[in-house]
Design a protein around this nucleic acid. Structure first.
Lengths: 219, 219, 219, 219
DNA sequence: GATGAATGAGCGTTCATTCAT
DNA sequence: CATGAATGAACGCTCATTCAT
């Protein structure tokens, strides 16, 4: 079994596990069910993952790695619009991958991480730092091109926490449709933009950069 | 057993349960252990709580009810300082009651709430609203007394999420001492203050309202 | 549940376990099967025994405790005949309780004892010493009453090992009927008697003390 | 792979298996571990042995074959000293190959043999007979050369069981050093010698034939 | 009210063995 | 010959919950 096949099989297992978890009783999903759905024997699961918890962790890593990859290639022309794009990207990702919600929430619990193998625990912990790096980079760009003042860099923690807190709320509204989430996103975007200070041109996000349902759907 | 004795017994069970949970393996704590430590029989626990999960939920409610009670009687003279006091109160409460950390984190998971009895689930859900009410009231006061502009009210969601996000970070730094947490609290306070707009007197939090270790310890 | 009921239940479990073990595949007997046969739930077994291995150990202790009790009340009039009686008692006990054979053999393995809880391990280890004490007492009696010389006491280890070795052979002949085992017993008895020295009257065991099938069956 | 290579590979597997088993948890050693240590794939093990149990059995056979080979070429000049040499050889072999202890003990269990393939089971069973043959031959020699009386031949079973029983004790004292085992060996030797009757010259083993540490070490 | 004996479903994990390559 | 991926049966043990006393 070469590397490629191996990766393929693992991805298949993760995909089927994710599918199994799409229920409020997801913690009760047994390894046997996952294996069944993936069409392999229970033992085979353990050739790829050392434990059920590792499956949880890998799904969470996958979710965030994808998100971070998206965030590292934002296309906006000016810093301000790229920050807006960043925020909307983060929310859209959570909206589009709602099936990951339970697992990622579970894996962020401190006691889950404590009982994980060190390497994976580190990877999970790094997500936080990588996320902050993206925001820091955005703020630095904006300072360089004059989009906002030098002290914007101090806003990084606040911005991070605002997004984090909003997401935890956002994720709980799972039954609401995409459209009804938009005000929340816009509100948060405005809040964050105002925190880094007024732009050269005082257009608010409402006028020029507002995240709209159209945008959300066109992607 | 009259009402009073009943309440006393329940509190005793909650206290002993909390004591049992003070370990990273807390999910493995059995009802038998809690009963043992509280000096009653296993069956007795079920005369007071319908399930082990209800104990988790009640502890979480207790934690937040205490916090909210504190927040509703803030003593600051002007709105600005009361907002600062609110923020520090919230953080201090989390700092002082660290033993609740694991349980409250666990109970906030969407799937936990889903599988709880409706009444308790509602109580847990209400915490969020009550928290937001406190912030809203603070902002309204400040608008009335001119501490900040009328659009400050729109900052409520942002403020809520910032605090929420910061707390989740805050709670994970369990091994750090109180002092080293102060910069985080100050940073968040500054961030939030700047978001509601400059006060009449442009003193920054650094000058007049800074949360200091002395304050933290004098309480 | 008072002490008496408790003891009764435990004995019942041991009895049913023993019945389950009466097969060459006895190691494959599951706790569930034992519980089933005893008419209780699996969990109930664990209210009385901390592990499956403890059941093995308890059965073994029971087997030897009964044997040792028998050996401590031998009725022979002179030392020589009591030694003969002792030997035959030991063999008869093993013959009559053949269903214990697999378990006792299993429990004597050094690695089994190593992985047992210390208290039980000690009890198992003590069986050896108690057995040797019985033999020592017999030899001392015989020295006092002049049945054999003073150096008979030095034969204790040899006698012990001879019996032990013969038993391990004896136990493997499980398919042979009682009668065909008699020569073995007589041979060992002669061997041991001759090792402690000639009696005052030089009758051999063959003449006066021979263990016969009649004796074996009349008990 | 010719016969020679095949034998070599099998011996290598047995050696590495034996090395793996040098722990009280040896029953938990997996085929994978043995294969790993021997530097071959798991499947390869099954090209040489039909099951894990066969490995156990082969190791046991190896242990006893070596011992029996030694016993068949004892160098003593007279029967009496050759009997002494035989006993010491048996004990020394067990002392020097302590790492086999767990495995040989395990393989002597009746239920182990019952579940083995017939051919191997027979080989294991034959060990017993071969061992007895050696003793019988020794006794016959002694009768011929007048070392002991004709009825010495009747002592064969007793001698066999004495040695067998003493070895099971001997093997459990694994933590004791060689020197402290010597009294046990001498005691058993004396016991057995006295059972076959006095020699022509009434020297006791203590005088002329005693097994000493020097002898043990000079080999 | 209080007890604690009894329940029994539930599950992650291991590993000897096989067999397609 | 050698591999090692795949298998899947097997099982001890836990523990939240119930309920007869």
């Amino acid at each position: 079994m070469n590397k490629k096949e191996r990766t393929y099989r693992e991805q298949s297992l993760l995909d089927h596990a994710l599918a199994c978890f799409n229920t409020d009783q997801w913690e009760n999903v047994s390894v046997a069910e996952i294996a069944d759905r993936a069409g392999v024997a229970k033992g085979t699961v353990y050739l790829h993952f050392t434990s059920k918890h590792e499956i949880y962790a890998q799904l969470t890593l996958q979710f965030y790695n994808t998100l971070l990859a998206e965030c590292q290639s934002l296309s906006g022309t000016d810093s301000r619009s790229r920050l807006v794009l960043f925020i909307s990207t983060v929310f859209k990702h959570h909206q589009e991958k709602q099936e990951y919600r339970r697992v990622t929430q579970y894996c962020q619990r401190e006691d889950f991480i404590k009982n994980l193998n060190p390497e994976l625990a580190q990877s999970l912990a790094n997500i936080e730092y990588r996320f902050q790096s993206v925001i820091t980079a955005l703020l630095c760009d904006g300072i360089k091109d004059g989009s906002w003042g030098a002290d914007a860099i101090n806003k990084m923690p606040g911005i991070t926490y605002t997004i984090k807190g909003a997401l935890s709320q956002f994720c709980c509204n799972k039954n609401t449709d995409q459209e009804s989430q938009i005000p929340l996103i816009n509100s948060i975007t405005d809040y964050i933009l105002s925190s880094v200070g007024p732009g050269k041109k005082s257009k608010t996000v409402t006028d020029s950069l507002k995240f709209t349902l159209d945008q959300a759907l066109e992607t």
